Computed example of a mutant assay.
Amino acid sequence: AQQVFGLIGEAVEQIGTRRETLQLKASTCVMRWLLPRLMQWQQERPDVPVELTTTVAYTVDFRREQFDAAVIYAPIAEQSAQARHLFDERLTPVCAPALLGGLHTPADLQQQVLLHPTRDERDWALWLKAANTRLSNLAQGHHFETLDLAMTVASQGSGVAIGDSALIGEDLKAGRLATPFELRVPTGMGYYLVYPPGTEPSAGLEQLMDWLVSQAQSPSQ
Rank of each mutant, 00 (worst) to 15 (best):
R37L: 09
R37K: 03
M39S: 09
M39N: 08
M39A: 03
Q40G: 07
E44I: 05
R45E: 02
R45Y: 15
D47K: 11
D47L: 13
D47G: 07
P49A: 09
L52A: 03
T55D: 09
Y58I: 00
Y58E: 00
Y58K: 00
D61R: 06
D61H: 13
D61W: 15
F62M: 09
F62H: 08
R64E: 07
R64A: 01
E65W: 03
Q66Y: 07
Q66T: 12
F67M: 15
D68A: 15
D68S: 09
A69V: 14
A69L: 11
A70V: 15
I72R: 00
Y73H: 01
P75Y: 12
A77Q: 07
R84G: 10
H85R: 08
H85V: 15
F87V: 13
D88F: 12
D88C: 08
E89I: 03
R90Y: 08
L91H: 05
V94G: 02
P97D: 09
A98N: 04
L99T: 02
L99G: 14
L99D: 11
P106C: 03
A107D: 06
Q112E: 08
Q112F: 05
D120Y: 11
D120S: 02
R122H: 02
D123P: 15
D123V: 01
K129E: 09
A131Y: 04
N132Q: 06
N132Y: 11
R134Y: 14
A139T: 12
Q140K: 06
G141K: 01
H142D: 11
F144I: 05
F144G: 02
D148W: 02
D148T: 12
